[in-house]
Write a protein that binds this DNA or RNA. Structure first.
Lengths: 268, 268
DNA sequence: CGAAAATTTGAGATGGATCAAACGTCGTGG
DNA sequence: CCACGACGTTTGATCCATCTCAAATTTTCG
């Protein structure tokens, strides 16, 4: 029932003019630094798209241009790298509202390292021309600040990834991953009132993100289910005991908020 | 012989006015984006310090101020986090000339996540006041570009770290680590003519950086030595077969250069 | 010289990988 | 409506890279 209506919503939503495609992005970016209405309007003006990206397509190539700021408007995606040994390492999971990569800040493409960005299911992608963005940032410094904070949060997120891969066990990794997903999706209003959310990743993909084999991801998820911590099926996840899961995986949402540092330390 | 003279150089260097403390930093930053002499001069003017940081001290606290851009002028350091389970994960090794963290770009302190920056041996730290930096960047946009590229390279470096922790074996990790160290030290002129370089890390610390136990780091290093790939003792490393080691660990220096993206793709 | 810190060695335990097969589930076409 | 094939999940059995614990050895340094 729930799933059916969700699906219908989505199909209709894509054609209804009522849907605000840029909603998640604007919500997210202005949470980092409050944007005045005219700045949001300015952003909407320079946003082109959304382009419909077919499932499993390279988002950077689906968009013809090679510079500019790519935004995931809807759907899920991931940035990853294929390694010499045939393995795939997923660096980052992208959820609606996310900026796909921050290469535009420095003019250095992440593709230098062989990184790609690929949608999981079908996705919609928006784009802002760098030239337009620069103009907008110059007139509204708050926008640049918001973007820099978004970039900092993306960076912090990656640090958390290093922690996971470097010193967390399988259960902790998976638990942490699920907590992070829920939190990020909550920020853009994609968690239902029953606290469940869509997560269209195969177990193999979760493994590639967390440095675990598919088989072990499967067994770890089973453990989490047996413990009654999460319920998971058909790409829909419910975290049944958020507090416990967060504690078990030492998840602390702090790093995803991007709030400015405290003025002074408590030390001394 | 070699070591003794190196040591003396250092001790004397600290007091000799002849030594250019900011040399490594300026070399490094202007490699990212060429800076005109007057910009370099401007940087020197706003650089305060260097402050002598005692071994194993918190660099952010040794410096009284909490904002501003910290620069490692000499010595080695690392940013790390202490985890609930008592483990320590090292995120980044800092070598002379490195900017310690990029929190100043967004006003979000990395300390939010509990990260610290600590010197390995004794180190010297410089600092640029944010206000000064902003003025300088506004007059010389090239400087901001250079800093953003430095930030991008630091980010790419972290991605490489994710790859290592997520999908490389112990030998590959250690090999890659040594290749990266040599390359970064080469960029600031800290590799001797015999291609050897100082690396004042204990095996336990290498382990904390690479997600390996001390014992396994030890055995891995022994393997590398037995294979005749590296020689390592007393904190001095020589990579005997750079090509082989790089191949073995799939090291590609590209990501450390921070050169702008190619204008077009070779694809299609 | 002696104590503390690092490196090295040995033996045993284990978390997670690998390989292979069985079992759903779903969309497709007959 | 069912048979089919593709794909994802699950299960079982085995293996191995790496960890842990503990002690010996070497190095560092007061």
């Amino acid at each position: 029932m729930e799933r059916v209506s969700t699906h219908i919503d989505r199909v209709i939503g894509a054609t209804l003019p009522l849907e605000d495609v840029w909603g998640p992005f604007l919500t997210r970016i202005s949470a980092f630094y409050p944007l005045r209405p005219e700045v949001e309007a300015g952003l909407r003006r320079v946003l082109t798209g959304p382009l419909q990206a077919p499932p499993r397509s390279d988002l950077r190539k689906s968009d013809g241009h090679h510079d500019g700021l790519l935004i995931l408007a809807s759907g899920f995606a991931h940035s990853y790298r294929l390694l010499e040994n045939g393995r795939r390492q997923i660096m980052r999971i992208l959820v609606p509202g996310d900026i796909c990569d921050y290469g535009f800040l420095s003019g250095i493409a992440a593709t230098t390292g062989g990184d790609r960005i690929m949608s999981f299911g079908s996705a919609r992608v928006g784009r802002i021309d760098v030239a337009h963005l620069i103009v907008l940032c110059e007139t509204h410094p708050e926008l640049m600040r918001a973007i820099l904070r978004a970039s900092a949060v993306s960076h912090a997120s990656m640090e958390e990834c290093v922690i996971s891969l470097g010193s967390r066990t399988a259960i902790e990794r998976v638990g942490h991953f699920l907590c992070e997903m829920r939190f990020r999706l909550e920020l853009v209003g994609l968690v239902g009132s029953d606290t469940s959310f869509d997560l269209p990743l195969k177990q193999a993909e979760i493994g590639d993100a967390l440095g675990l084999s598919t088989v072990h991801v499967n067994r770890t998820l089973q453990t989490l289910r047996k413990e009654g911590l999460v319920s998971m099926s058909l790409g829909r996840v419910t975290i049944l005991k958020p507090g416990l899961l967060a504690k078990l995986s030492s998840f602390n949402s702090q790093y995803l908020l991007g709030q400015p540092q405290r003025a002074s330390y408590s030390k001394h």
